[in-house]
Write a protein that binds this DNA or RNA. Structure first.
Length: 578
DNA sequence: TCTATATCACCC
DNA sequence: AAACGGGTGATATAGA
């Protein structure tokens, strides 16, 4: 495809950097930058002392120039730290490489070296890259020879970018690639903002972590003796079962089936199993040693945009506050004078399926505000005047059915999920097929397209190759998740460009913050831009959103986590939440 | 003792 | 062959 004419030039940019004061969670400290003009190859090198003296970029970044990088969010983070105005046009070759090859088996991954190898281009060795990376991460100071080596290394990356751009240039879908580039800027903006964390509570949890676990174990395991320190020993559990004459299900491998569902099932018959089950789940939920919190008490980590096959972000679960169990979100707390809002699209996947399939009944159900109950009514299982209170049980079953369809669940799994006979699950799934015929036709088409065409794609060009593996369920689910991801990207762009302070994206939600007297307005703007993003992706169809608001001095809390939060706070002598 | 795999826990 | 989509991470066990 033809590239726009960038009359002020195309600039390949790479920074070397390390986290400030060596602490993960802090913004980066740029060490050097190399810029290479494309296609002329004219190159300039800038060491950090010079960078920090520059009020602006040493190359054009206006509407007639293009800035090219590999993993541009990192470069944009450096721009942010240096106080530079971000470029108008960004092309991120990592993103484009992911998009181009998503779903294919790549021999060398999707890093810069992997991309070079994919195109048969020369590169430095991986070991050399690791060595240089380690040298940079020491944080200096670097000898003159080391400075030269780091600059040389940085330059090899822009040379690589040059080769890559030449190789990929004609395969790039430019308008959409530039939109994805704008998203990488939004990602940087969000990463640099981060999530405000209650450092005091975090410190207490970290300090008392071991004691909390020990205390929970001591309280319960004294009757069982199955823990060795803080680890549950399967063989001791087996001994306990033998001693107490309890038959226990096994996996095919012969090992004891240790999943929570089995514990729950067994606890029904053998009540003595219940306490150990509770203890196991409590302990397994504890994880926060690796959380990346900067010196300013903000959780910042790589959001890993486009990492998932569906195009979703995939931040590390241990580094990102939204990764671990929900009760730890109690650590999220607005700064004094500030408020937070967690805004998520209501039943996003259902709405996407309705709009993109063009299923009128499904669209009606979505617009009713309660798709699950509406489905029950449309299927004739609830009267028109039913409410979520009068028909709670029916609604729960139809809700489970909707979610099951989205994941491609079979009748047996659905039956187990709703604790009903398989016949009931079969009936629910059949009702879905009958009520939403157009949706099912659309879903069948996706499978045909994937099998015959070898490819599926979302509205703004994110695609997946489907020749290697991928089952029916993944194929049917892809359009919903991938378009949901497109929607989140567009909302992230709209919000950050409108000046809303976005703290984090969470798949179908955004966490934002604002000074208390601006919070209401910020929420209004956020809802409206998220609605606009849905119209853009769904050809005019509007998705609503739900808001959870928190004002200082309150902390954020997911209702699913209140009990655990209070239990732990109780152990370390902190006041419980109301 | 280290690494690869299996299993399970959690998230949306 | 199984039949719950997309993920990350911790832990236990098996094997080198």
């Amino acid at each position: 495809m033809t590239a726009p004419n960038f009359s002020d030039g195309t600039y390949l940019v790479d920074f070397e950097f390390h986290p400030a004061r060596g602490r993960e969670g802090n913004p980066p400290v740029p060490v050097c930058m190399v810029v290479r003009e494309w296609p002329s190859g004219r190159t300039t090198r800038h060491w950090q002392t010079a960078l920090h003296q520059m009020a602006t970029t040493p190359f054009p970044t206006g509407e007639n120039a293009l800035c090219v990088a590999y993993y541009a969010s990192a470069e944009m983070d450096c721009f942010h730290v240096l106080g530079w105005v971000p470029p108008v046009n960004v092309l991120d070759l990592f993103t484009e490489f992911r998009c181009l090859t998503n779903g294919l088996r790549l021999a060398h991954g999707s890093g810069l070296l992997g991309a070079l190898m994919h195109f048969g281009l020369p590169s430095i060795g991986g070991e050399q890259k690791d060595t240089m990376r380690d040298l940079i991460l020491t944080g200096g100071p670097w000898s003159p020879a080391e400075q030269l080596a780091i600059l040389d290394y940085c330059e090899t990356d822009v040379v690589a970018l040059d080769d890559l751009l030449t190789a990929m240039h004609d395969q790039i879908d430019w308008p959409r690639a530039l939109l994805r580039g704008r998203y990488m800027q939004a990602v940087s903006c969000i990463q640099m903002n981060g999530v405000p964390i209650d450092a005091e509570a975090l410190e207490k949890l970290q300090t008392h972590w071991v004691a909390i676990q020990d205390q929970l174990i001591a309280d319960i395991d004294s009757d069982y003796g199955v823990y060795d320190g803080r680890t549950f020993k399967a063989n001791r559990w087996e001994a306990y079962l033998v001693a107490n004459d309890i038959p226990w299900p096994r996996l095919e491998s012969g090992r004891l089936d240790m999943c929570d569902a089995t514990f729950r099932e067994m606890a029904r018959t053998y009540v003595e199993v219940a306490p150990i089950r509770e203890l196991r789940s409590a302990l397994s939920e504890m994880r926060l040693a690796n959380l990346h919190v900067g010196d300013d008490n903000r959780n910042r980590c790589l959001l890993s945009p486009f990492r998932a096959r569906t195009g979703r972000n995939q931040p590390s679960n241990s580094k990102f506050i939204f990764g671990p169990s929900v009760w730890l979100r109690g650590l999220i707390r607005p700064m004094p004078g500030w408020g937070l809002a967690y805004v998520d699209w209501s039943q996003q996947e259902f709405g996407i399926a309705a709009a993109l399939s063009g299923d009128l009944a499904m669209m009606d159900a979505y617009r009713s505000g309660d798709p699950y109950l509406a489905f029950a009514k449309q299927a004739g299982a609830a009267p028109p005047e039913a409410t979520k209170h009068t028909h709670e049980a029916v609604r729960e079953q139809f809700k489970a059915c909707v979610l099951a369809v989205q994941y491609g669940m079979g009748e047996a799994s659905l039956a187990a999920r709703i604790n009903q006979p398989v016949a009931r699950a079969r009936q629910l799934l059949e009702l879905h097929r009958r009520t939403y015929r157009t949706f099912w036709k659309w879903s069948d088409c996706a499978v045909d397209e994937a099998v015959l065409g070898g490819r599926l794609w979302a509205g703004f060009g994110w695609q997946i190759h489907t020749r290697d593996e991928l089952n029916d369920r993944s194929l049917r689910n892809f359009p919903m998740q991938a378009n949901g991801a497109e929607m989140l990207r567009i909302a992230s762009i709209l919000l950050t460009e409108a000046g809303i302070r976005v703290c984090a994206p969470v798949h179908d939600a955004l966490l934002i913050e604002a000074p208390l007297d601006e919070l209401d307005q910020a929420i209004t703007t956020t809802k409206s831009l998220m609605q606009e993003a849905s119209r853009i992706v769904l050809d005019g169809f509007e998705l609503g959103s739900d808001v959870k608001e928190v004002r200082y001095p309150d902390r954020y809390m997911d209702k699913r986590g209140v009990v655990m939060w209070n239990k732990v706070m109780n152990l370390i002598g902190e006041p419980a939440l109301a």
